[in-house]
């Protein structure tokens, strides 16, 4: 069953101005539940805009976006927030952890906006932190962590509500290759062992090759949609 279905999605910035920018120019594709998809493209190609639209962070100008069997335009504002909270997880290039806040509190953040009773929060956060192997750092302030640890804390935060899909926007972009490898291993585990749908935006081919399928965007159009013939194995990062 398709989790995500895009039909002729267009996104225009500044539509009223003399030079409107066409960021997405009629994108159509489907993503099944449990798939690991990478979105590639040069900078300015529209891949980030596409991720924002997919992640309910931005609205398309036209076209149909079906998420989990329901048309985007039929979600109310609060429902959109609720979908972001419960069905989606976000991993950002810049980590976006709250400073002066412990790993535990950072990971708990999405629960604040959920209907999960507060008594369960600590256990859920501990489990998520364990899943990314950061238990020994649980009470550390986020600013004391290394880049890789920060991204793992961010992954734990994305995991905590057991979302259907995790969006990762250049998750290794700010990391050295070793930390990047660890992060990508965790993301693959989420997909292969826990069954999360992963949508990964990257401009690095070797990162994209962790995915089962690569969508290439250029000038706001879907240029190619290929299955990855030979997926990158875990060891290959360490050259």
């Amino acid at each position: 069953m398709d989790l995500i279905e895009l039909k002729n999605i267009k996104k225009v910035y500044d539509p009223e101005s003399n030079e409107p920018t066409l960021a997405l120019d009629g994108i159509t594709f489907n993503i099944k539940k449990g798939e690991f998809v990478a979105i590639m493209g040069p900078s300015g190609s529209g891949k980030s805009t596409l991720l924002h639209v997919l992640g309910f962070l931005d609205l398309p100008t036209s076209g149909e976006y079906w998420f989990d069997g329901k048309l985007l335009s039929q979600y109310s504002k609060d429902e959109i927030a609720a979908v972001r909270n419960k069905k989606m997880g976000f991993i950002f290039q810049a980590f976006n952890l709250l400073s002066r806040t412990s790993v535990l509190e950072n990971v708990k953040l999405p629960l604040l906006y959920s209907d999960v009773p507060e008594s369960k929060w600590d256990k859920m956060a501990q489990d998520a932190i364990e899943a990314v192997g950061l238990t020994h750092r649980i009470n550390h302030d986020s600013s004391q962590l290394s880049g890789g640890e920060k991204q793992r804390a961010a992954i734990a935060r994305a995991l905590i509500n057991d979302p259907q899909v995790i969006f990762a926007d250049e998750p290794t972009g700010n990391l050295d290759s070793k930390s990047g490898q660890i992060v990508m291993e965790i993301i693959r585990k989420l997909n292969e062992e826990m069954g999360h749908t992963i949508i990964l935006v990257t401009h690095e081919t070797y990162t994209a090759e962790h995915a089962q399928r690569i969508l290439t965007i250029k000038d706001g159009k879907l240029e190619s949609d290929k299955k990855v013939e030979r997926r990158r194995s875990f060891g290959e990062f360490l050259k």
Partner: peptide
């Protein structure tokens, strides 16, 4: 921080 909170599911009211 506001953007992050919204991405993680905070409503305008939150």
């Amino acid at each position: 921080e506001i953007g992050l909170r919204k991405a993680l599911g905070a409503t305008d009211k939150d």
